[in-house]
Simulated assay, not measured.
Amino acid sequence: MSKLTLGLQLGYWGAQPPPNLVSLAQEAERLDFDSVWVAESWGNDCFTPLAWIGSQTSRIRLGTAVAQLSARTPTACAMAAMALDHLSGGRMMLGLGVSGPQVVEGWYGQPYSKPVTRTRDYVDIIRQVLAREQPVTSDSEFYPLPYHGPGSWGMGKPLKPIVHPLRADLPIFIGAEGPRNVAQTAEIADGWLPLYYSPYRQEVYADQLLAAKPGFEIPALVLCNINDNLEEALYPVKAMLGFYIGGMGSKARNFHKELMARMGFADEAEQIQELFFAGKRDEAIALVPSRFADEISLCGPRDRIREKIRDWESSPVTSLLINGDSALLREMAELVL
């Protein structure tokens, strides 16, 4: 068994920024949480809140989970990561993800093509920037450097960053769900950010993780709800799953639905999506199997959660990413740390 660390997952904003971002991060740091993570969707970016939090903490590691590839070029992403790493004294972790076709094409106005290849090219360029050994070049079809395509003035030349990176080995994490993307993540990244992970179905990802090098980190999002009534405790997990499996993707392609199918719940995933698209959201949530919701979360009475933590300690997961108020953070710190 390996000892788990804890991370605070702050997610992305709703209509307004949460008023307690800094105070929660400070409480997590006081409780010896290892990391704090900020996400982006089509609202807030992830670097700005993380910089704000980093300026008011001193030890906790700072992660993007995840910075969307289509939101910025790889060199722009590397610049933001370098700046935050310097300003925080080496606490930055760069979590990346391709997002999905609805966001990439609908919000960023870019084609959602070859996501696995695009991710590899993106990471390669960032690694070059951080190494700062020579001017950055790439023959990528997505990120050619220098650019000599249509509209080019023909004046571009390879450049090295002016800023000397604080760490050439600034850790890069990738949020991946598909088998090919997870396998590539184990090969090219320092860590993997799974959305749903079940310590009871380790075989789902076992082959894809074989290429992971020593020290490879797996911080997994784990929804926690301490409640003596297990079904009540599981409801927020089911609501999240119903929304992502039913609505976060098109009818033709939904990566969350496909993952649920690979984890053994294909029929339920199909029915959940059908109900969600029919406007029957409550029925879709009710159809989420309690078994599935329970496997990927830590819910129920305190003693039950304590027992389940042992199952997570026996998995490849290295950190549990928790989302909740300060009371939940304290409870989980007592149980895990």
Rank of each mutant, 00 (worst) to 15 (best):
T5S: 14
L10W: 04
N20Q: 15
A25R: 11
V38I: 03
C46V: 02
S55E: 13
R59D: 04
A67H: 04
R72K: 15
R72E: 02
M79F: 06
L87N: 09
S88E: 10
R91S: 06
V98R: 14
R120I: 01
P135I: 05
S138L: 08
Y143T: 03
L145S: 09
G149E: 09
W153C: 07
M155Y: 00
K160F: 01
A168T: 10
A183T: 02
P199S: 11
L209W: 07
K213R: 14
P214T: 00
L221R: 13
L223E: 13
C224M: 09
I226G: 13
L230K: 15
L230V: 10
A233H: 07
P236Q: 11
M240V: 00
G246R: 08
N254L: 01
K257H: 11
M260T: 08
M263H: 08
G264N: 13
E270I: 01
Q271E: 14
Q271F: 02
P289W: 05
I296Y: 05
G300F: 12
R310W: 00
E313R: 15
P316Q: 10
I322S: 08
G324V: 01
G324R: 03
L329R: 06
M332Q: 02
M332A: 04
A333F: 09
E334F: 00
L335K: 12
